[in-house]
Design a protein around this nucleic acid. Structure first.
Length: 502
DNA sequence: TCTGGGGTCCTAGGACCC
DNA sequence: TCTGGGGTCCTAGGACCC
């Protein structure tokens, strides 16, 4: 342990000599960089990668735009149709024809190919894992590294004119900067894609630093200079400040991170809740969150847009397909779920969610579908533009039980990637309370539907003080009325046919 | 700018229990 | 009887992130 937060020790580690060294590695327009990796013709060209986009179409949204494309005003999350207005497709260009765009003002449009990007990300990850003891992967193109044990904040020898200093608030070169440069170069060399790196004594400052000089940036913020580094930045540069919070802050005359640092935490908490207090701490350079590996997912979902429709059959078909997909992914990952929910977005953008929790965790695609459809029925007469299905309250069965179900264990390969050890320091912080009742885990629906498994009080009977009497699953919530002697299915039917008055 | 898809965390209110 | 506090679980919505 680093002992950094012993009782009595000041949590403000910003100026202490025990300062951690945290890197935030952020790949530059990652999808576009990946495409360039396999097609050299795209280098130097404006490249737009669209999700939900297919060649020749105008639907979908911009997932990533290269910096060349951004120069034309193309931005992330922009509808493809609008991007095309600003930057026409190259294939539509013809230098001979005055009626079509000039090639110089056009770009290359490609659909997202997640599988390929994940393969490239695997190469990046391999470098990062090799360079850090503790690694938190935030997304396919972003990660935090705690490299305190690999490097230090010590300044390196004198003023060597031969070496240029990284962009940053300090002119003093440090070992940490040299190490960050090494990591950055290894990524470029071994994975073939560029990255920006932020170096700071804590996560939130490192995150802001990596953003400060994109692309191909390296920004170092040594201990003691975090607050000064952040101060001039607009509030929106702080991680966790989106449009809504930015507006709320502006109304109080808070425009910069420096203003946030000067604000009264309690006053801000009145407006923003605990987030307000946290924001002030971050802006002051205080952030003692440990870099921890990402835990297991908390929910799985799929959603898709559709042309505005009120057609019941169309909606049901969509939800059935989404439900099947979510259930399949859950099974692939060896995870049980206890809550099934839907999302229905009504035009113009009215987001509605509905959810139903089961008495215990299941792996049951049919049930996902039937519950989702039942929840959907509330919107039978409504026009929607997007539908989604989600499972949550996840329960990752131990591997032996996952195999028991006849499928392979946790997929390890593609997305998850929680597989690499970190073993001993266990307690990934995640595994949220909720009790879950470890002994009940992994039991499959069939174990208790239609009767409780012998000798087991059943999932859900675990909390301290629970008056669990072993009477089986009927024991769950208030709807015990006559939910039929402990049959999960029966109680579901009760809920869906009769009880849904609520 | 009428907005794609996958997530996380937080909050608030209600039901229920002791 | 109309009143208390504390705790948990559930649902719904919102903000934010990439």
């Amino acid at each position: 342990m680093d002992g950094g937060t012993l009782p009595g020790a000041d949590a403000d580690d910003d100026a202490s000599d025990r300062s951690r060294v945290v890197f935030h590695v952020d790949m530059d327009c990652f999808y576009a960089s990946c495409e360039r990796l396999r097609d050299a013709d795209l280098r130097g060209e404006p490249v737009v990668v669209g999700m939900g986009y297919e060649a020749g179409e105008t639907i979908g949204a911009v997932a990533t735009a290269s910096y060349e494309a951004r120069a034309f005003g193309v931005e992330s999350a922009m509808p493809i149709s609008e991007a095309l207005d600003r930057l026409p497709r190259r294939v539509d260009a013809d230098p001979e024809d005055p009626d079509v765009p000039d090639p110089d003002g056009t770009g290359r449009y490609l659909p997202v190919d997640m599988e390929f990007y994940e393969a490239v990300a695997g190469d990046v990850k391999a470098v990062l894992r090799d360079c850090a003891d503790v690694l938190r992967e935030v997304s396919v193109d972003e990660a935090y590294l705690d490299v305190t044990d690999r490097t230090a904040w010590d300044a390196v020898g004198g003023d060597d004119p031969a070496s240029s200093s990284a962009a940053g608030p300090s002119d003093v070169r440090t070992l940490a900067e040299g190490y960050a440069r090494h990591v950055k170069e290894r990524i470029e060399r071994e994975a073939g894609v560029p990255a920006s790196v932020g170096v700071a004594p804590n996560m939130s400052a490192a995150k802001v630093a990596s953003d400060a000089d994109k692309p191909d940036g390296l920004v170092v913020v040594p201990p003691g200079s975090v607050e000064a580094f952040l101060a001039p930045l607009p509030t929106a540069a702080l991680h966790g400040v989106g449009p809504v919070t930015e507006r709320a802050l502006a109304e109080r005359g808070i425009e910069t991170a420096g203003d946030v640092a000067d604000a009264d935490p309690d006053a801000l908490a009145e407006e923003l809740g605990d987030r307000g207090r946290e924001l002030v701490r971050r802006a002051r350079g205080e952030d003692d969150r440990e870099v921890t590996p990402r835990g297991l997912p908390k929910s799985l979902s799929r959603e898709s847009s559709l042309p505005r429709t009120a057609d019941e059959e169309r909606k049901r078909e969509t939800v059935s397909a989404l439900a099947a997909d979510v259930a399949r992914r859950a099974r692939e990952r060896g995870c049980l779920y206890r809550t099934i929910g839907i999302k229905a977005v009504r035009p113009p953008f009215d987001v509605n969610t509905r959810a139903h929790s089961l008495p215990g965790p299941v792996d049951d695609p049919d049930l996902v579908e039937s519950v989702a459809l039942e929840l959907l029925s509330e919107f039978d007469d409504e026009a929607v533009r997007k539908l989604g299905v989600r499972v949550s309250n996840l329960d990752f069965a131990d591997s032996d039980q996952a195999t028991l179900g006849g499928f392979e264990g946790v997929d390890g390969g593609g997305g998850g990637g929680d597989d690499e050890g970190n073993g001993t320091d266990g307690d990934d912080g995640g595994n949220d309370g909720n009790g879950g009742g470890k002994e009940g885990d992994g039991r499959r629906l069939t174990d208790w539907v239609g009767g409780k498994p012998a000798g087991d009080p059943g999932p859900g009977c675990d909390g301290p003080g629970s008056d669990c009497d072993g009477s089986g699953v009927g024991h769950d919530r208030g709807d015990d009325a006559d939910s039929g002697g402990g049959d999960g299915q029966a109680s579901l039917r009760d809920w869906s046919e009769g009880g849904r008055r609520g």
